[in-house]
Amino acid sequence: MGFFDVTSKIIKSIAYPSEMVPSIDDHADDGEHHFDPVTEHESAKLGMWLFLATELLLFGGLFAAYAIYRAKYPEMFMDGSKSLDVVLGTVNTVILIFSSLTVAVAVKAIQENRIKLVKLMLWITIICAAIFAVNKYFEYTYKFSKGIFPGTDIFYSIYFASTGVHMLHVFIGMIVLGILLRKVYKGKYSKENFTAIEIGGLYWHLVDLIWIYLFPLLYLVG
């Protein structure tokens, strides 16, 4: 097997995991389902919750750094916070909370087989995420134009590090939701098979939740 065959097989198996042909043909005998559907559904949810716990601990490091340095430099955090754009921050907060609602509706809708509604809600969620990203882009570039960069002082380092890592999660969320949407169009999901949308929704709620903490801690303490 040549290098390119292997590479293309890896890419293909990541892009279309469910269509992946396992080397052990017997494993494929039950198609998509390796185990019974109820177990798979419950397991996927448990697995996702565990993954969300790891995400909280990832951000936990940033929150700990925030707590330590805010206690050490209260003035710096007051001043830094005042320089952030509360209006844009508020708009972004509202957008993310709204997108959490739409993704929740999508999860409910797929369980009732209302495919059109699912598509609409996922579209709105992705667009909300995009608007959030655009706003953040303007916020960042405005800061850069004023000569404020990561490393300018500890507050801005925390601001850029935590919103940056959060932004990365927004992008990942957009990709996840995009893949789900594409599969909805392909007719992969129904009220019998909605686990992927449910756990994708869980991930998006986490992205939202982290922001709900980041927003007051960064924008509103000034």
Binding site: G61, L62, F149, G151, I154, S157, F160, A161, V165
Partner: peptide
Amino acid sequence: ITLLLLIGERYFGLGF
């Protein structure tokens, strides 16, 4: 996150 911050420290000079 610790190693990410270390990378940020080297790359951007975050200062933590």
